[in-house]
């Protein structure tokens, strides 16, 4: 059982016009086995929250805390956070030419476990996860994300989540740009990992559609750098019907 606790998190970025505050006091607690959906309009700071937890150097934490099972996450380097059990499926996964998917996966698994996986079971695990995500085995020999379609990149992110077995996974718009079939495949992947490893999930999304496949335990409405409202799955239905206007005019 793991818990990620975010308390009064303030984050800013440097822009040509000066320092800009994007997160303005975020409070959020995620336990193993729970799915928290974060929904909010464009530019509200959802990706900033995801990147800040993962440790992207572009974002400066000005105040607040993030802990995982009591450990100070903000003190950790990016790779230490991954080793501690935090995983970020990125909104725009990065291409890494010259590095094959299979080499990348094995290197990451070795880094996170602190030892190389047993070759025989590893190869089998990779194969079956790829098959479950309907990824052609040929992807293993391609360079990381190079020339992948949008949907292929997202499947590759979920493949990593399945193989690296994090404690807390942040999925940043993993559903955006997917057709219905791909959405179902990716959602099934997330559910499978959750059943298997009891991972806690922070599901950032724009659309309620994915919530038909992955049932959230909590829904948070994210507006202007903070959580404006939270509730159960019924909140998502209301957002679907009414949109974010209510929160925006208030803000």
């Amino acid at each position: 059982m793991s818990t990620l606790v975010i308390t009064d998190l303030h984050v800013s970025v440097e822009t040509p016009e000066g320092t800009k505050e994007i997160l303005r006091g975020v409070d959020l607690t995620i336990d193993s086995g729970h799915v928290h959906a974060i929904m909010g309009p464009n530019g509200s700071g959802k990706s900033t929250l995801a990147y800040s937890i993962a440790g992207h150097p572009k974002y400066t934490i000005t105040s607040g805390t993030v802990t995982l099972d009591g450990e100070d996450v903000l003190e950790m380097s990016v790779d230490e956070r991954a080793k501690a059990g935090i995983f970020l499926a990125m909104q725009y996964p990065v291409e890494v030419p010259g590095v094959s998917v299979s080499n990348f996966l094995r290197t990451a698994k070795t880094a996170i476990d602190g030892e190389a996986p047993k070759l025989r079971t590893w190869v089998k695990d990779v194969k079956s996860s790829m098959a479950d995500l309907r990824m052609d085995p040929a992807f293993a020999e391609r360079n990381v994300n190079e020339g992948f379609s949008g949907g292929e990149k997202k499947r590759h992110e979920i493949l990593q989540m399945e193989l690296l077995e994090p404690k807390i996974a942040i999925l940043d718009e993993t559903d955006s740009g997917l057709d219905v079939d791909a959405l179902r495949i990716v959602s099934e992947g997330v559910n499978r990992v959750k059943d298997k490893t009891n991972v806690g999930v922070l599901l950032i999304t724009h659309y309620t559609r994915i919530l038909n496949y992955i049932t959230p335990d909590f829904v948070h409405v994210f507006v202007d750098g903070r959580v404006a409202e939270q509730g159960g799955p019924e909140l998502a239905e209301r957002l679907e019907a009414e949109g974010y206007d209510r929160y925006l005019t208030k803000a």
Binding site: A54, V99, A108, L164
Partner: peptide
């Protein structure tokens, strides 16, 4: 920086990340 961040967010250290990329480049 983005490639470095991507690899490190998967637990790969900075120096291992560079090696991974350079090995691939020259292999």
């Amino acid at each position: 920086e983005e490639q470095m961040f991507y690899l490190r967010s998967r637990g790969i250290s900075e120096s291992e990340a560079r090696k991974l990329v350079v090995r691939g480049f020259f292999a």
